[in-house]
Amino acid sequence: MHYDPVLAWESMPTLLAGTATTFAVLLPVLVLGLLLALPVALMRLERGGKAVFAASYIAFFRGVPSLVLLYLVYSGLPQLSVVRDTFLWTVFSNAYFCAWVGLTLTHSGYMAEIIRGGLAAVPPGVVEAATALGLSPRQALFRLRLPMAARYVLKAYQNELLIMVKSTSAVSAITLVDLTAAANTVFDYTYDPFTPLVTAAAIYWCIVNIMRIGFTMADRKLNRHLARG
């Protein structure tokens, strides 16, 4: 078993096409997951029915394996006539759409908990100061609490994001050829598992480390008030 640079070079177009699919799955999931997580996190901080709903949402989608969720969305939902016999079929027959739905739900469960933690860490006195200065609850949320929470959760979000990058490989189970699936295809054709998989791992490594550098830069900018003093 050895690494074959020529095969690696020749399979690069296949692997890069897989990388494109990985991003096509990942980016909408990151945006939608964040948008969905925000109201869930806010509900989680309230009392009563909303908090119970949010807690159940988080518990459910963090608990269900994302691979199982993908199968359920892609293969399970079309078993229901309400999906199969209506306009829903047009969207749920699309593997990308199902990947977005499944991974977004998982991602939003984790993100809701991260955002909740960040908001809970904002000192109440600072919010009171803003309130006493005449900011509305809405302004206090969007202009103070969330910007402060974003600074606190940067590290946790980085973890979640990097794990998400690699979790997208689950989508090969519902026919999408992402980076991992592409590497596996090369293995199938060449009987060389080592070269394509190590190359794919290297590509993941590059993606993850570019993101890490991005986070370091964001941290330096957003948390510069902690660097001094």
Binding site: G125, A129, M148, R151, L222
Partner: peptide, 15 residues
């Protein structure tokens, strides 16, 4: 709007 408030713990916006 009529009131200004000063707290024991300053409560400045740290960022």
């Amino acid at each position: 709007r009529q009131l200004g408030m000063v707290f024991q713990g300053f409560n400045l916006f740290p960022h």
